[in-house]
Design a protein around this nucleic acid. Structure first.
Length: 506
RNA sequence: GGCCCCGUAGCUCAAUGGUAGAGCAGUUGACUCUUAAUCAAUUGGUUGAGCGUUCGAGCCGCUCCGGGGUCACCA
């Protein structure tokens, strides 16, 4: 860390020295507080409405966000976790010494405690007339905020911290000065709460499964590798919960879910962070159509709880979440948008030729499934603004999904798309242990020997399947992406408190 | 990883290859109803780091660091 202080910091450190010299501890242990900012404002208005004669006494705490010294009086605003309240300090009430203490030694960003009584200023703002105050914690580094104003109860920033790198590296400062950022994470928390509530109401059991796994699986991604010293064993940070959660259905639970962190050692961009929050649920005796219904109900439920409405605004689109969402068979969607009938092209070679004829971009080494998935991502998905379930996916990109009855090449899998973004992935789970083993072996063939996405065979998972797993519908969704939709954020970093960045220079 | 853009005061931003500036914050002073308070004065810079071109580099070139965008990658 830099040991060098800026001029402003040096000035404030000198204030700390002066405070201690006059017997004032800049970082005291105990705090008194009778009201939050929100409570005192409500209670004051209520007392006014009732025509109460007795003034409302209150002791408030918060961070100094504005100071307007005007000689023998000073106006200031303090901000706590619930809002702001104006303070009024007057030399007549406090005496010249305390007045000087406040004006000279206190800074924006300091946490203070103030006792007094509520009144209304001539311009009409509910304000605490301060009779006594204390420093609670001295701020050394100035908050990266210029001035702001309050318009209709909303804090309007004027030239505040906006450099993305600084905002993410110093999220504490970002949160401290940008109320909209604080709001995003409240919304995110409410969203997760609503999803839990929905699943709990539907009798799902919330469980926790290993983050450190000896064999990773359940998705196609490169894992992070770590090492256990005593066991002398490589361990992988999980890339999905899937294989563990389904073991629990073998164990007899009918519905389980987990909300937790997945880790994927892949590229970082607007919609990908190396660690991200995933929701997966599995429901016995359900198929993928049943999961579609649950999905649309769950998202609608969350919107109702979090946003109080059944639509959301995202990137200038109005997204209607009312059920039922559109269902689109993948092959039909591609035929409509691109004009290629994938059923007419049973091999990668044939499909690639058709794509070539249409002038589409593709990787010539891709399997048929990857070609189809590429067309979906590049051409079909961007058209899916309103919520849409795209269903029936090729076998070779869906190794854990059950095939359609009588059609082994297509699986009962769907993805939910909203605003052109892949939101969730679900299927009728493959519970035939022999078919599953064959799929694992196929995957080994489809990936080159050196392909880092090649998965090790999970023998224990196959053993679990052999005991018998009921017909099951399974579901996975990135919470971060849903949070982006709910908060109208175009970048996943906006909805992750501490997104991954390269390490800072010394 | 490829390509494009960016990095200047605590924050937000200026500055034809020719003395590095502004607003806010800070400091000092004035001010008893302000609220982006106002008024006056004023401090603050290794221009991300380094090397080069040049009489002279914030600006031009190269390398590196960090960030943003985009493509690739991401069943």
């Amino acid at each position: 860390m830099s040991a060098k202080y800026t001029n402003i910091e040096q000035t404030r450190l000198e204030k700390v020295e002066r405070l201690r010299a006059r017997g004032i501890e800049p970082y005291p242990h105990r705090v008194e507080r009778t009201h939050t900012s929100a409570q005192v404002l409500v209670e004051f208005e209520r007392a006014e409405a009732a025509g109460s004669e007795k003034p409302l006494q209150a002791t408030l705490v918060g961070r100094l966000r504005s100071m307007r010294p005007m000689g023998k009086i000073t106006f200031a605003h303090i901000e706590d976790g619930y809002g702001r309240v104006q303070l009024f300090l007057r030399a007549n009430d406090l005496g010249p010494e305390l007045m000087e203490l406040f004006n000279r030694e206190f800074d924006l960003g300091d946490f203070i405690q103030a006792r007094g009584e509520m009144f209304r200023t001539r311009s009409g703002e509910a304000t605490l007339k301060v009779q006594d105050f204390r420093l609670l914690a001295k701020s050394i580094t100035p908050l990266p905020a210029a001035k702001d104003e309050v318009v209709d109860g909303e804090v309007v920033q004027h030239a505040t911290l906006s450099e993305p790198e600084l905002r993410y590296r110093q999220r504490y400062a970002d949160l401290a000065v940008n109320p909209d950022v604080r709001r995003i994470f409240r919304t995110r928390a409410a969203l997760v709460r609503a999803l839990r509530e929905f699943l709990d109401l539907h009798d799902f059991l919330e469980v926790e499964t290993p983050v450190l796994q000896p064999i990773y699986g359940g998705a196609a991604a490169r894992p992070f590798v770590t090492y256990h010293n005593q066991l002398k064993q490589d361990l992988y940070l999980r890339i999905s919960f899937e294989l563990y959660l389904k073991r629990l259905l073998v164990g007899g639970y009918e519905g389980v879910y987990e909300i937790g962190r997945d880790f994927r050692n892949e590229g970082v961009d607007r919609t990908h962070n190396p660690e991200f929050t995933q929701l997966e649920f599995y429901l016995a005796y359900a198929d993928y159509f049943k999961v579609m219904e649950l999905t649309e109900q769950m998202i609608l439920f969350a919107a109702d709880k979090v946003l109080g409405k059944h639509e959301l605004q995202y990137m200038n689109h109005t997204i209607q979440l009312k059920t039922p969402w559109q269902r689109m068979e993948l092959g039909e969607g591609l035929l409509e948008i691109i004009g290629i009938d994938i059923e007419q092209h049973p091999t990668a070679e044939s499909l690639a030729a058709a794509m070539q004829a249409k002038g589409l971009q593709f990787n010539p080494n891709d399997t048929r499934g990857k070609l189809i998935d590429g067309m979906l991502g590049d051409y079909l998905a961007p058209t899916l603004i309103q919520p849409t379930f795209v269903y029936n996916y090729p076998r070779d990109i869906s190794p854990l999904a059950k095939s359609l009855p009588g059609n082994p090449q297509i699986t009962e899998r769907f993805e939910g798309y909203v605003a052109g973004m892949e939101l969730c992935n679900a299927f009728t789970e493959l519970n035939d242990p022999l078919d599953q083993e064959a799929r694992f072996i196929e995957m080994g063939h489809d990936y080159a020997q050196d392909d880092e996405e090649r998965h090790p065979m999970d023998e224990d998972y196959l053993r679990a399947m052999r005991y018998g797993m009921p017909p099951t519908g399974g579901f996975g969704m990135g919470i971060d992406r849903l949070a982006m939709l709910f908060t109208d954020c175009p970048n996943i970093r906006e909805v992750i408190l501490f997104p991954h960045l390269r390490k800072e220079e010394e």
